[in-house]
Design a protein around this nucleic acid. Structure first.
Lengths: 113, 113
DNA sequence: TTTATATACCTAAGAAAATTATGTATATAA
DNA sequence: TTATATACATAATTTTCTTAGGTATATAAA
């Protein structure tokens, strides 16, 4: 997924679902750029990781797609299905617990609360 | 690694190294119990994940071992090598950046700082 | 006494999720 | 015409985990 960050293994689905919840529909390339911008280049989301993940989420019924042509190039937009909207909520809750547990295990508790 | 937590993939090495830095020498079973206690049972570190990880860290020269017999049972203690003590510092720094980036990507920034 | 649970180590087969390396194609800047 | 950016995709491999099994001792319960 990234330059020197095997830590992100397992978090990709949650990241994708949350970005789609925040931004409405997005296409694959747009997601890679968004991740790069948000993390200031720390995290480079590889296509070999992203596309299979998107296809899997779609196959599971969490995402829906619509294809459009812009500037003679095909874009495949992804958006949350109703099921996906439900799923992102529980995935985010799990992520909160994950971060909390990881901070406990690594003695990295934040300064407040 | 856990009940329903594929999120922890990739974080195991860092967790092990940090626990050994905090507690000095530890043996495998002790590590599994420590993780269980700290996370209040949220994270169950499986032996099939732990032992190969310990062996790998030892093979990489980050850990040293000493075997002792207690109550007729063999314990294999692990402790940080000099190289391991250096490595744990950078691994923790990476973990801080990882958590920060993940919180940014998931809109989970902590209340303070 | 035998069974279950806790302690303590280990590995092998398989699954899941990533990296690396490709491939196709268009648009634009050098 | 070459490189870079945009935009999709997959195949082979690697890494890392789960699941499932194995060995062995100590102790509590049935």
């Amino acid at each position: 997924m990234a330059i020197r960050n095997e830590l992100f293994k397992g978090t990709l689905q949650t990241i994708i679902l949350n970005l789609l919840e925040e931004n409405g529909r997005m296409y694959g390339y747009e997601i890679t750029q968004k991740v790069k911008t948000i993390t200031q280049g720390d995290l480079l989301l590889k296509e070999g990781a992203l596309y299979p993940a998107l296809h899997k989420l779609e196959a599971e019924g969490l995402l829906e797609t619509m294809v459009e042509v812009v500037d003679n190039r095909v874009r495949k937009y992804y958006l949350l299905s109703e099921e996906g909207k439900t799923e992102v909520v529980s995935k985010l809750q799990e992520a909160r617990e994950f971060i909390n547990n990881l901070q406990l295990l690594l003695n990295l508790k934040p300064q407040l609360k």
